[in-house]
Simulated assay, not measured.
Amino acid sequence: MGTCIPFKTYIAENLSRHPTTSVLQSSTYGSNIATLVIDGDKRTSEKYCAHTEVNQTKAWLQIDLGKPFNIESVKIFYRNERFWKPYRFRQFYLDVSNTSATQTKTAHRTRCYTDNTTYPAVPPNVIDIPCKHTARHVIVKTTYDAPEDNPTRGAILEICEIEVYGYNSGETNAASKDTTTATSTAITATGGDRVYSGVPTLGTTTTRYYRGQPVATALPLPVNTNSSTITATAIPADNQCMS
């Protein structure tokens, strides 16, 4: 008989779409306002992207989640068109902080990523960055002046969408790591009440059921650790574990 371990699963969600989330950029070019990066539109033509002003020595864009969250990853969609590639995306960096970009210097933030692309290569316009930290602010910044910008000069950001995946601070065992072996381990419910089915994948939204009813909150999940695939059994009572 296997050992039964009760625990909770949490689906890492796109925190950028929370109603409490706001966005700010260092400057604005034309009508390319900062909120375009959290509108859910992933098209990468200029009119769908936030755009900082030209002729600046630095450019940054900040996602303010409203409070600290446990961040898992950050996915950035950058401007990319047939005749305009992400030249200006070279050598950007991604920081997180509990203090706004308007109040902190780079040295006081936590670095998640630095791009090292050099001319004439260009970075991918869509990049998914692991960033496992607890923080309120997610900051993309650059001081890079692309040589393709002539006569326009300065550091410029043209970000079309940012997805920040994570969950509430204080919660543990996110769906991306909610098994006792590996993230690729399938979880299959048995019995009358389907709790969770499928392979946990960061950022997915899988409907879960408890006592035959769909639920939006995390639930205790009994696990048989004697099986090559971890099996979730039906839950007879809250927080009660079956072996």
Rank of each mutant, 00 (worst) to 15 (best):
I127R: 07
D39N: 14
K8C: 05
D193T: 08
T188A: 12
V223P: 08
I5R: 10
D95S: 12
Q240P: 12
D178A: 01
L202R: 06
N150R: 15
C4Y: 04
R17L: 10
V164K: 00
A216F: 04
T104D: 11
Y210K: 15
N168G: 03
G191L: 11
A50W: 00
A121S: 02
V215I: 09
Y165A: 04
T152Q: 11
I5L: 03
Q56R: 09
V54K: 14
P130A: 15
T3I: 13
G30E: 06
A182C: 08
L157W: 09
A121N: 08
R136P: 00
I187S: 06
I156V: 06
Y48M: 03
F7R: 13
T99S: 09
T134Y: 08
R153K: 12
P200S: 07
C49D: 09
A12F: 04
V195P: 02
T99G: 05
G166M: 14
I71F: 01
H18K: 08
N239W: 11
V54C: 07
R43M: 09
P130Y: 13
A59K: 01
P147S: 03
F89G: 10
Q213V: 11
K85R: 05
M1P: 14
S26P: 11
L221I: 03
P86H: 00
T20C: 08
C112M: 14
T179L: 00
Y119E: 03
N70L: 06
Y29E: 12
T102M: 02
